[in-house]
Simulated scan of single mutants.
Amino acid sequence: METAAAVTFRDATEADVDALVALVESAYRGDSSREGWTTEADILQGQRTDPQGVLEVIGAADSRVLAVERGGRVVACCHIEHRGTHAYFGLFAVSPALQGAGLGKVVLAEAERAARADWGATEMHMTVIDARADLIAWYERRGYRRTGRMTPFPYGDERFGIPQRDDLRFELLIKELG
């Protein structure tokens, strides 16, 4: 199994859009996602993101998309956005072949560090589909707490996927960055 060693972080650019979309799709949708543990293939089909959505967050004010490279290839990514006293974390993906080797922990820690250093953020916020107990438990082991604050899944908007069940919603998770 490969480890998280020898990765570099950089801000993503427009030239990275196709690679980032492919990475996110491979981590969450379809058969390739089943190679890792972050798959949503059983609860959502269709797309997870699209080039327009990725381009928008790359170009947004108070926003950074971190591209994580190893050997000249993008193997992970995440998006952080400055929202006052907190930062929002999303668009998190690790190549399925590298999941379980610690790379996700490294990426999350770098996102938290950058949010503190760049924006003085005191908290990191994220939303996770509440049916993803394994993923929520992973974030809890990294200091995130469940808030019980739910927002509805955008049923009918296929930009976010095609739900395979009717009980999906997002829960807000928060971590104090201290």
Rank of each mutant, 00 (worst) to 15 (best):
E2R: 13
A6C: 13
V7E: 14
V7I: 13
T8H: 15
F9R: 09
T13V: 14
E14C: 10
D16G: 01
V17N: 02
V17T: 13
V17S: 03
A19W: 08
A22E: 10
S26I: 09
A27Y: 06
A27M: 08
R29S: 05
R29I: 10
G30E: 12
G30R: 03
D31M: 14
D31S: 15
D31W: 10
S32Y: 09
S32V: 11
S33F: 04
R34T: 13
R34L: 15
G36F: 02
E40Q: 13
E40C: 13
L44Q: 00
Q45F: 06
G46Y: 09
Q47C: 05
D50Y: 01
G53K: 04
G53F: 00
L55D: 02
G59Q: 10
A61E: 14
S63V: 03
R64E: 10
R70K: 14
R73K: 12
V74I: 15
A76I: 00
A76Y: 00
A76W: 00
C78D: 05
C78E: 10
H79W: 14
H82Q: 13
H82M: 13
R83A: 06
R83V: 13
R83T: 12
G84W: 12
A87C: 15
A87G: 15
Y88M: 10
G90Y: 13
V94R: 07
P96E: 03
G102C: 04
V107R: 00
L108P: 00
A109L: 08
E110I: 02
R113C: 11
R113E: 11
R113W: 13
A114Q: 14
A114L: 14
A115E: 01
A117I: 07
A117C: 10
W119T: 12
G120E: 07
A121G: 07
A121H: 02
M124I: 07
M124S: 02
M124K: 02
M126N: 03
T127G: 12
I129M: 09
D130A: 11
D134L: 15
D134V: 11
A137D: 03
W138L: 07
Y139Q: 03
E140F: 08
R141L: 06
G143K: 08
G143E: 06
T147S: 09
T147V: 11
R149G: 05
M150Y: 15
T151L: 12
P154S: 08
Y155A: 14
Y155F: 15
I162V: 09
P163M: 03
P163Q: 04
Q164C: 12
R165W: 07
R165P: 05
D167M: 07
L168F: 04
F170Y: 14
F170I: 12
F170T: 04
E171W: 02
L172I: 09
L172N: 07
L172F: 05
I174N: 05
E176F: 08
E176D: 15
L177T: 10
